[in-house]
Nucleic acid binder design. Sequence first.
DNA 1: TTGAAAGCGATACCAA
DNA 2: TTGGTATCGCTTTCAA
Lengths: 341, 341
Amino acid sequence: MVTMNDVAKRAGVSIATVSFVLSGAKPISAATRERVETAMRELGYRRNPVGAALARGRTNIIALLYPALQRPATGSVMGFFTSAAARAQELGRNLVLWPISNDAGEAAALANTGLVDGVLLMEVQLEDARVEALRPGTTPFALIGRTRDTAGLTFVDVDFEASMSEAVAALDGLGHRRIAFVTGNWGDLHLEDHGAAERSRACFRTEMARRGVRKPLIVPCAENSLDGRRLGRTLITEHPELTALVVMNEHAAPGIVMGLRDAGRRVPDDVSIISIGSSANMAGMADPPLSFMRTPGEELGRLGVDAIIERIENAGAEPPAVLLACEMQPGATLVRVRPGD
Amino acid sequence: MVTMNDVAKRAGVSIATVSFVLSGAKPISAATRERVETAMRELGYRRNPVGAALARGRTNIIALLYPALQRPATGSVMGFFTSAAARAQELGRNLVLWPISNDAGEAAALANTGLVDGVLLMEVQLEDARVEALRPGTTPFALIGRTRDTAGLTFVDVDFEASMSEAVAALDGLGHRRIAFVTGNWGDLHLEDHGAAERSRACFRTEMARRGVRKPLIVPCAENSLDGRRLGRTLITEHPELTALVVMNEHAAPGIVMGLRDAGRRVPDDVSIISIGSSANMAGMADPPLSFMRTPGEELGRLGVDAIIERIENAGAEPPAVLLACEMQPGATLVRVRPGD
DNA sequence: TTGAAAGCGATACCAA
DNA sequence: TTGGTATCGCTTTCAA
């Protein structure tokens, strides 16, 4: 491995000078800079980030912490990751996806070792032990998602309340009142711990109550098409009065449509469906293609990186907090309720 | 930050002793070990991996290089990543997903800075500049996939030939002869550069030729349901004689089924389908659920990690090379051809 | 069984 | 504008 020393020797300067050329921290005469750069080129020198990290206390690496070992990841994580990585690169940082157990200690351990400049936490729960473990440390962190109490925390999250309100309003505008809400079933987590689940359920209840429905139907479903199909069948059989479904479970949604059809209901003629928090590709897996509200995953990826970098560079400032609603996309599963229904 | 020095002082020993206790590299008396461990606990000490990496020349980090910026990732990457991460953890390593451009220099740069002990390359092309860039370096690397010439390389890959042969044999056994092959359309890459595509196409041709079909139909399709649907419609309209499809494009497959139905063909009564290299979840998105051959993604993740670690620890040995075929899974889209067809 | 000390590669302060 | 050098935190050799 070529070191700074090699470069310095070859250029006939001190390693301090080489370092200054590299970092631009001090003015260097054009002549010496030229000599140093030539030496670097000839030797194929690359700065060793480990040495630099030890000396500077910074690595330029941001870790996107994902509890992959507990919750095998879905495709939406990748969209997020991709845009976050691109944004980090634009800003001269490295963003890596770091699998981690949900064990609070592990996150704090990684953060406080100096291996990374900051961390982004995914799959945040309402009461999240990792957040409590990171708080006392000095390494900046930001959440993708939110805990219940967000005071003093940096986060970017989907605005589930706004999305849900818009979805219910859309159905309401088409005359639907008998609406069920199908949520996800977030792995081993207790549903109550999952922010997206709890916030959207609460909002669904509120919106329905405002429209005179006191105890609206809310059912969880595992996140895959087969369970979706099963659920679609039983749900409509047990609750034949339903005219519409709000689904927040993109992987189950296409199966649900099949299940309804299995049970003799047509979509959307008999039952309208709106899928909240979906990708276009998943919505297109259903027949007919689902009317859906797009998860702003890519936007959040970018914003999450901006937020953590802001935190790293400007620790004193007000912590950024961003909420972004899903955006309604056209589809073929939303129609006016039939008169008489 | 608590350092080894703090621990040493508190325990009344030298930092060398602390290091030995931590690494177990040298025998330490029970009494001293006890004192050191107590001090570590009381101070909440954690070894700084940056310092350790600099001293040892090893970081215990393995990078899974993914060209995320060129080719936004699909869900199957995550399955692979998850199992690889779990395996790495079992073996005391960290596996991180590192986005990288397909630019050869970038991969080599990362590898040769000492930041990672080894790299796993994903989305390998038949002629892959990254491989050539990594070859001369000293950092071990392994491929997920294969280049055309694999001499001296460590790799784990799907055995497309075996999988394709089995798929065609299955259709053949049911009397199908008029079979088309729908491949993926790997982003901006020229199809010819993609190993999976080329190997499976060649194998399809061979298998069909052996059965007396000289120029079998092979069509690419973008990897999403909407394009799949479009393709299904036009394909069967332009080639009404087809009785079966081999699909190697899990995201398009459910759409293809819809497209066939749009064109008035029933699946599987009129057209049988087998999806090669799919996950159960995607196969279940179709109605009826697809007969498919499962991508051994999780197995490959584990084996890939084993391979790169073997390479790191035992640089002299024969480079491991692993091929794993997809495994046939039951579904509802495979039936005997109708007499007369 | 333990300790002193020489690195690992780079940064940055203090002098010159 | 440049150089000498202490320093970051840990590993490991050599001596004791």
